[in-house]
Amino acid sequence: AQASVVANQLIPINTRLTLVMMRSEVVTPVGIPAEDIPALVSMQVNRAVPLGTTLMPDMVKGYA
């Protein structure tokens, strides 16, 4: 199954992502693919992302 990017902590709005904030997990619905984690580093989220939330393309500025 495809692993997705999941928030490893609460990520406040406009925060630049770092590796420690993200983990890969097989979840439904599928979000951003886990292999994109390196590309997500330093991108900003456009909303607060609670712990355990799957990151979707529309949550990350410049990803989609």
Rank of each mutant, 00 (worst) to 15 (best):
residue 1 A to H: 06
residue 1 A to V: 13
residue 2 Q to F: 10
residue 2 Q to S: 10
residue 2 Q to L: 13
residue 2 Q to C: 08
residue 2 Q to W: 14
residue 2 Q to V: 12
residue 2 Q to Y: 13
residue 2 Q to E: 13
residue 3 A to W: 07
residue 3 A to C: 14
residue 3 A to E: 10
residue 3 A to V: 07
residue 4 S to A: 03
residue 4 S to R: 01
residue 4 S to Y: 03
residue 4 S to P: 02
residue 5 V to T: 07
residue 5 V to C: 04
residue 5 V to G: 02
residue 5 V to Q: 01
residue 5 V to A: 07
residue 5 V to Y: 01
residue 6 V to F: 02
residue 6 V to H: 02
residue 6 V to D: 01
residue 6 V to L: 08
residue 6 V to M: 08
residue 6 V to Q: 03
residue 7 A to L: 03
residue 7 A to D: 00
residue 7 A to N: 01
residue 7 A to V: 08
residue 7 A to E: 01
residue 7 A to I: 06
residue 7 A to Y: 02
residue 8 N to K: 07
residue 8 N to Q: 10
residue 8 N to M: 06
residue 8 N to C: 05
residue 8 N to H: 11
residue 8 N to L: 09
residue 8 N to G: 13
residue 8 N to E: 07
residue 9 Q to W: 13
residue 9 Q to A: 12
residue 9 Q to R: 13
residue 9 Q to L: 15
residue 9 Q to P: 02
residue 9 Q to Y: 15
residue 9 Q to K: 12
residue 10 L to G: 09
residue 10 L to K: 10
residue 10 L to R: 08
residue 10 L to Q: 15
residue 10 L to M: 12
residue 11 I to Y: 00
residue 11 I to E: 01
residue 11 I to A: 00
residue 11 I to H: 01
residue 11 I to W: 02
residue 11 I to Q: 01
residue 11 I to T: 02
residue 12 P to R: 07
residue 12 P to S: 11
residue 12 P to A: 12
residue 12 P to W: 06
residue 12 P to Q: 14
residue 12 P to Y: 12
residue 13 I to D: 13
residue 14 N to E: 10
residue 14 N to K: 06
residue 14 N to M: 15
residue 14 N to Q: 12
residue 14 N to C: 07
residue 14 N to G: 13
residue 14 N to H: 14
residue 14 N to S: 14
residue 14 N to T: 06
residue 14 N to F: 13
residue 15 T to Q: 09
residue 15 T to Y: 14
residue 15 T to A: 12
residue 15 T to L: 05
residue 15 T to C: 04
residue 15 T to V: 10
residue 15 T to M: 14
residue 15 T to R: 06
residue 15 T to I: 10
residue 15 T to W: 13
residue 16 R to E: 05
residue 16 R to D: 04
residue 16 R to C: 06
residue 16 R to Y: 14
residue 16 R to P: 12
residue 16 R to M: 14
residue 16 R to N: 07
residue 17 L to A: 00
residue 17 L to F: 02
residue 17 L to G: 01
residue 17 L to E: 01
residue 17 L to K: 00
residue 18 T to V: 12
residue 18 T to Y: 04
residue 18 T to F: 04
residue 18 T to L: 06
residue 18 T to D: 05
residue 18 T to K: 06
residue 18 T to W: 03
residue 19 L to T: 06
residue 19 L to A: 07
residue 19 L to R: 09
residue 19 L to K: 06
residue 19 L to E: 04
residue 20 V to C: 07
residue 20 V to W: 15
residue 20 V to F: 15
residue 20 V to H: 14
residue 20 V to G: 09
residue 20 V to L: 15
residue 20 V to S: 08
residue 20 V to A: 14
residue 21 M to D: 04
residue 21 M to P: 00
residue 21 M to Y: 09
residue 21 M to K: 03
residue 21 M to H: 07
residue 21 M to N: 06
residue 22 M to N: 00
residue 22 M to R: 00
residue 22 M to V: 11
residue 22 M to D: 01
residue 22 M to Q: 00
residue 23 R to W: 03
residue 23 R to I: 06
residue 23 R to M: 04
residue 23 R to Y: 04
residue 23 R to P: 01
residue 24 S to Y: 07
residue 24 S to D: 05
residue 24 S to I: 09
residue 24 S to Q: 14
residue 24 S to L: 04
residue 25 E to W: 07
residue 25 E to M: 06
residue 25 E to Y: 07
residue 25 E to S: 06
residue 26 V to F: 11
residue 26 V to M: 08
residue 26 V to C: 05
residue 26 V to W: 10
residue 26 V to Q: 07
residue 26 V to T: 09
residue 26 V to L: 13
residue 27 V to K: 06
residue 27 V to A: 06
residue 27 V to P: 01
residue 27 V to E: 01
residue 27 V to Y: 02
residue 27 V to N: 03
residue 27 V to S: 06
residue 27 V to L: 05
residue 27 V to H: 04
residue 28 T to Q: 11
residue 28 T to W: 05
residue 28 T to Y: 11
residue 28 T to I: 12
residue 28 T to E: 13
residue 28 T to S: 12
residue 28 T to P: 01
residue 28 T to R: 03
residue 29 P to G: 03
residue 29 P to Y: 03
residue 29 P to K: 07
residue 29 P to I: 07
residue 29 P to V: 09
residue 29 P to M: 04
residue 29 P to W: 03
residue 29 P to N: 05
residue 30 V to P: 12
residue 30 V to E: 11
residue 30 V to W: 13
residue 30 V to M: 13
residue 30 V to R: 04
residue 31 G to S: 02
residue 31 G to R: 01
residue 31 G to D: 00
residue 31 G to L: 02
residue 31 G to H: 01
residue 31 G to C: 03
residue 32 I to H: 00
residue 32 I to F: 03
residue 32 I to R: 00
residue 32 I to N: 01
residue 32 I to Y: 02
residue 32 I to A: 01
residue 33 P to A: 07
residue 33 P to M: 09
residue 33 P to W: 15
residue 33 P to R: 11
residue 33 P to G: 06
residue 33 P to K: 12
residue 33 P to F: 15
residue 34 A to E: 10
residue 34 A to H: 09
residue 34 A to L: 03
residue 34 A to P: 07
residue 34 A to T: 08
residue 34 A to S: 14
residue 34 A to Q: 09
residue 35 E to M: 09
residue 35 E to Y: 11
residue 35 E to C: 05
residue 35 E to D: 12
residue 36 D to T: 14
residue 36 D to I: 08
residue 36 D to A: 13
residue 36 D to H: 11
residue 36 D to K: 15
residue 37 I to R: 11
residue 37 I to V: 09
residue 37 I to D: 00
residue 37 I to Q: 06
residue 37 I to S: 05
residue 37 I to Y: 03
residue 38 P to T: 10
residue 38 P to E: 09
residue 38 P to R: 09
residue 38 P to A: 08
residue 38 P to D: 09
residue 38 P to G: 13
residue 39 A to V: 08
residue 39 A to D: 05
residue 39 A to E: 06
residue 39 A to R: 15
residue 39 A to C: 05
residue 39 A to Q: 12
residue 40 L to W: 02
residue 40 L to S: 00
residue 40 L to N: 00
residue 40 L to K: 01
residue 40 L to Q: 01
residue 40 L to C: 03
residue 40 L to F: 02
residue 40 L to Y: 02
residue 40 L to D: 00
residue 41 V to H: 05
residue 41 V to S: 04
residue 41 V to G: 02
residue 42 S to F: 14
residue 42 S to D: 08
residue 42 S to H: 09
residue 42 S to V: 04
residue 42 S to P: 01
residue 42 S to E: 09
residue 42 S to N: 15
residue 42 S to M: 11
residue 43 M to F: 11
residue 43 M to Q: 07
residue 43 M to K: 14
residue 43 M to C: 04
residue 43 M to H: 14
residue 43 M to G: 04
residue 43 M to W: 09
residue 43 M to I: 04
residue 44 Q to D: 05
residue 44 Q to K: 09
residue 44 Q to H: 15
residue 44 Q to V: 07
residue 44 Q to W: 12
residue 44 Q to Y: 15
residue 44 Q to C: 05
residue 45 V to N: 03
residue 45 V to Q: 00
residue 45 V to T: 10
residue 46 N to Y: 13
residue 46 N to G: 06
residue 46 N to H: 10
residue 46 N to T: 15
residue 46 N to R: 12
residue 46 N to P: 03
residue 46 N to F: 12
residue 46 N to C: 05
residue 46 N to E: 07
residue 46 N to W: 11
residue 47 R to G: 07
residue 47 R to W: 06
residue 47 R to Q: 10
residue 47 R to C: 04
residue 47 R to M: 12
residue 47 R to Y: 14
residue 47 R to N: 07
residue 48 A to D: 15
residue 48 A to W: 08
residue 49 V to F: 03
residue 49 V to I: 11
residue 49 V to M: 05
residue 49 V to C: 05
residue 49 V to N: 01
residue 49 V to Y: 01
residue 49 V to R: 03
residue 49 V to A: 05
residue 50 P to H: 07
residue 50 P to C: 08
residue 50 P to M: 14
residue 50 P to N: 12
residue 50 P to V: 12
residue 50 P to W: 06
residue 51 L to T: 11
residue 51 L to G: 10
residue 51 L to P: 13
residue 51 L to C: 06
residue 51 L to F: 14
residue 51 L to H: 13
residue 51 L to Y: 14
residue 51 L to A: 14
residue 52 G to C: 04
residue 52 G to H: 12
residue 52 G to K: 04
residue 52 G to Y: 06
residue 52 G to M: 06
residue 52 G to L: 04
residue 52 G to R: 04
residue 53 T to Q: 12
residue 53 T to L: 10
residue 53 T to A: 13
residue 53 T to P: 01
residue 53 T to D: 10
residue 54 T to M: 03
residue 54 T to P: 08
residue 54 T to Y: 02
residue 54 T to F: 03
residue 54 T to Q: 03
residue 54 T to G: 02
residue 54 T to C: 04
residue 55 L to R: 01
residue 55 L to W: 01
residue 55 L to G: 01
residue 55 L to F: 09
residue 55 L to M: 10
residue 55 L to V: 10
residue 56 M to C: 05
residue 56 M to Y: 08
residue 56 M to F: 10
residue 56 M to S: 10
residue 56 M to W: 06
residue 56 M to R: 10
residue 57 P to D: 07
residue 57 P to W: 10
residue 57 P to Y: 09
residue 57 P to C: 05
residue 57 P to A: 15
residue 57 P to F: 06
residue 58 D to I: 09
residue 58 D to M: 11
residue 58 D to P: 08
residue 58 D to S: 13
residue 58 D to F: 10
residue 58 D to E: 10
residue 58 D to A: 13
residue 59 M to S: 07
residue 59 M to N: 08
residue 59 M to W: 14
residue 59 M to Q: 04
residue 59 M to F: 11
residue 59 M to T: 05
residue 59 M to D: 15
residue 59 M to P: 00
residue 59 M to I: 05
residue 60 V to I: 07
residue 60 V to W: 02
residue 60 V to C: 03
residue 60 V to M: 05
residue 61 K to M: 12
residue 61 K to S: 15
residue 61 K to R: 15
residue 61 K to D: 09
residue 61 K to G: 08
residue 61 K to Q: 12
residue 62 G to K: 09
residue 62 G to Q: 11
residue 62 G to D: 12
residue 62 G to V: 06
residue 62 G to A: 08
residue 62 G to T: 05
residue 62 G to M: 10
residue 63 Y to T: 03
residue 63 Y to C: 03
residue 63 Y to A: 04
residue 63 Y to H: 05
residue 63 Y to N: 03
residue 64 A to M: 08
residue 64 A to N: 12
residue 64 A to Y: 03
residue 64 A to L: 11
residue 64 A to H: 14
residue 64 A to I: 12
residue 64 A to V: 12
residue 64 A to C: 05
